[in-house]
C-alpha cells in the first residue's frame, strides 16, 4: 500500500468554486474557512502541487476566464493516472520496443504514470517559482513527451464531465459555451443560425439522474 497523500487547498487559492473531492462530495470552498484536504490516488502532495502549478501555466486563470486551477485539473490527472489509462490497461505493450517514424505512433514502454514520475523529477521546486520562471522551465521541456501528455491531460481536465474530477463547477464548459450532455436539441438546431445558443450546462449525473461510474474507478 502507498502512504496516503493529500492535496491541501485553501479557499483563497481556489477562488470560491465547487470542488469535487475524491469521494465526490461537492463542497463549495468559499463557504468554508478551513482548507480542504483531498486524498490523492497516485501523486505525492509535492507532485500534485507541481502538476497543479504547471497546468495553471498551460491553461492559466486570467482575464479571459478561469483556468486549470479552478477546474481542479491536478485532481483529475491524479485520478486518471490511478486508473486504466495511467497504467496502459488498453495499450499493446508487448516487446520488442523499437524506435519508429512518427507515423507509427508512440512506441515506448513507459505508461502515463511512469511518464509523469520521470517528467516531474525534472521539475523539482517548480511550484515554488514565480510565473516567469515557471514558463521558462516549461519552454525547456516543450519538445518532450511528458509535456505533450501534460498539455493533453490539462485540456481533458478542463473540459471533461465533472464526474472525472476535473471541470469543477463546469467552469470549463461555461468558458467555451458547451452545455454538456443534452438529451435533445431537436427544437434548437435549426433555430439559432448565426446566433450563439448557450443553454446552462448540466453534467451527466444531473442530466440522467443516474449514478454513472467513471472508468477510472473500475478495477
Amino acid at each position: 500500500m502507498r502512504r496516503r497523500h493529500f492535496l491541501t487547498l485553501s479557499a483563497a487559492t481556489l477562488g470560491g468554486v465547487l470542488i469535487y473531492s475524491l469521494d465526490r462530495k461537492a463542497s463549495l470552498l468559499a463557504a468554508q474557512h478551513k482548507p480542504v484536504r483531498i486524498p490523492l490516488r497516485s501523486f505525492t502532495e509535492t507532485e500534485a502541487l507541481i502538476v497543479a502549478a504547471a497546468a495553471s501555466r498551460i491553461f492559466p486563470s486570467d482575464d479571459s476566464g478561469p483556468g486549470a486551477r479552478e477546474a481542479g485539473v491536478a485532481i483529475f490527472i491524479d485520478r486518471q493516472l490511478a486508473g486504466a489509462y495511467g497504467r496502459d490497461r488498453f495499450r499493446y505493450t508487448q516487446p520488442p520496443f523499437e524506435d519508429a517514424p512518427r507515423e507509427l505512433g508512440y512506441q515506448g514502454s513507459a505508461t502515463p504514470r511512469q511518464i509523469y514520475r520521470e517528467g516531474l523529477r525534472g521539475l523539482q521546486g517548480f511550484h515554488l517559482r514565480d510565473p516567469a520562471a515557471q514558463d521558462e522551465a516549461l519552454r525547456k521541456i516543450e519538445p518532450t513527451l511528458f509535456f505533450s501528455v501534460l498539455r493533453q491531460n490539462t485540456i481533458e481536465g478542463m473540459f471533461c464531465d465533472p464526474l472525472h474530477g476535473g471541470n469543477a463547477g463546469m467552469v470549463g464548459w461555461q468558458l467555451v459555451g458547451f452545455p454538456g450532455p443534452r438529451m435533445s436539441n431537436f427544437d434548437e438546431i435549426e433555430k439559432y443560425y448565426g446566433q450563439a445558443y448557450r443553454p446552462k450546462p448540466v453534467s451527466l449525473r444531473q442530466a440522467t439522474g443516474a449514478k454513472v461510474r467513471p472508468s477510472e474507478d473500475e478495477k
Binding site: F159, C160, D161, P181, A207, T208, A210, V212, P214
Partner: peptide, 9 residues
C-alpha cells in the same frame, strides 16, 4: 447507452 454521454471515457 442511456448514460454514455461522456466525452472522456
Amino acid at each position: 447507452y442511456s448514460t454514455d454521454m461522456d466525452e472522456l471515457d
